[in-house]
């Protein structure tokens, strides 16, 4: 099978930042917590490959640990969305038109009325800011996204004859959902998961930029940008690198999503078969 170009390009980009995040677990070029005023605002050099910030921290190390923060927050948030949203969507589709379906759908409407930022604001106002807040805020918003995608795709499958055949064989709705519906919407969920992952990274960056996400001393791309902004007149290059890190990661994931869609889309495959 030929892999789409986008998938390869996206995989390389996203893989690069995933690798940086994983490496940062065991090793970074410099300590990201230690401040060194003597080394502040250095230009890139052999010692500091990407230079240093206003507190003398190594930017490469911060970007590596920032990747870890971003990817972890977005990944867990997607996980929340899938673990809660997919079963809800399957349940709603399996009991189409019932009270349960109606409750799930209205619940979705309700959550859609709370943008991630509003949830984060509410949580922070009461519990104070943290990375966990960001995860919860983004994760909650992911739930209706996955529920809706799952329900929509499942509903169209429920009208197919093979579902009817399974019911004739005496299989119950739950079993049919797991055995026949879920495997056939998996492609769609993988693609949606990639999209939500990239949206999660953008959302995490925004939340930590306004101070509602990961707190110091944990480095995060959003806060690196917020700090860089204060020195934009004197050091205009400072906001460039963390921003590029966000753009490249999100771009990589989006390209992967598009590539996966091309690879897995049943409509395209039918043409090929």
């Amino acid at each position: 099978m030929r892999l789409p170009v986008q998938l390869i390009l996206g995989g390389v980009l996203a893989g690069l930042f995933l690798a940086l995040a994983l490496i940062s677990l065991v090793w970074t070029p410099h300590d990201v917590v230690a401040l060194s005023i003597a080394d502040r605002l250095q230009a890139p050099s052999a010692r500091f490959l990407l230079g240093t910030d206003h507190l003398g921290r190594d930017i490469l190390s911060m970007i590596m640990v920032g990747a870890r923060t971003s990817l972890a927050v977005a990944l867990v948030a997607v996980g929340i969305g899938i673990v809660v949203g997919v079963p809800l969507g399957l349940l709603a589709a399996a009991t189409r038109g019932s009270l349960l379906d109606e409750v799930v759908m209205r619940g979705n409407d309700l959550v859609f009325a709370f943008p991630s930022l509003v949830i984060a604001i509410l949580i922070t106002a009461v519990f104070g800011p943290s990375a966990v807040n960001a995860i919860i805020a983004i994760g909650i918003f992911n739930i209706p996204v996955f529920a809706r995608v799952t329900r929509g795709a499942a509903l169209s499958l429920w009208t197919l004859d093979y579902i009817l055949a399974a019911r004739v064989a005496g299989k119950g709705r739950a079993r049919i959902s797991v055995e026949h519906i879920l495997p056939n919407i998996l492609n769609l969920l993988i693609v949606q998961g990639t999209i939500q992952f990239s949206l999660g990274i953008l959302a995490e960056a925004a939340l930590s930029y306004v101070g509602l996400g990961a707190q110091p001393p944990t480095p995060s791309w959003g806060r690196m940008l917020a700090e860089a902004q204060t020195m934009i007149y004197t050091n205009p290059w400072l906001p460039v690198l963390p921003g590029l890190a966000i753009v490249l990661t999100v771009l990589g994931l989006n390209l992967m999503g598009d590539g996966l869609r091309d690879l897995l889309d049943p409509r395209l495959r039918r043409v090929r078969a």
């Binding site: 197919l160 004859d161 093979y162 055949a165 056939n184």
Partner: peptide, 11 residues
């Protein structure tokens, strides 16, 4: 059933 295409789980 009627539809020879929709009658089977493709997986």
């Amino acid at each position: 059933f009627q539809d020879p295409y929709g009658s089977f789980n493709p997986r």
